[in-house]
């Protein structure tokens, strides 16, 4: 785990490992995917029973918990896929259009 890619945007073409191989797997934390989002999941804390179904289903591990309770949806990784809203048994998550509503 010594591969330092903090300056990767400044690397010239010769510096990259051949073929797009990633020498240090598990670095997806450094790859923020929140910018892909068109719809933002907003959780209604009054409806939510903390069943954690959304947490299990989120493909980006963007739903953060602490002591078995949801503390936040991390918008720097949430791609807005809407799976959490679809799976929530109580419809406690609403998908808001990023271009229209500010939550």
């Amino acid at each position: 785990m010594t591969w330092d890619i903090t300056e990767i945007q400044k690397w010239d073409w010769k510096k990259h490992p051949f073929g797009g191989t990633i020498k240090d797997p598990g670095n997806s934390r450094k790859f923020k995917t929140g910018g892909w989002r068109a719809f933002r999941p907003v959780r209604d804390e009054n409806k939510c029973t903390q069943c954690l179904i959304c947490y299990v289903f989120c493909p980006d591990s963007a739903i953060k918990t602490k002591d078995d309770k949801i503390i936040e949806i991390d918008y720097s990784f949430c791609k807005g896929c809407g799976i959490c809203a679809q799976e929530c048994p109580l419809d406690a998550i609403r998908m808001c259009d990023e271009t229209k509503e500010q939550s």
């Binding site: 073409w13 051949f18 797009g20």
Partner: peptide, 12 residues
């Protein structure tokens, strides 16, 4: 990303 850089490496 770095697609362009990888293609330049191939040419090299």
């Amino acid at each position: 990303g770095y697609f362009f850089e990888f293609k330049r490496q191939q040419e090299e």
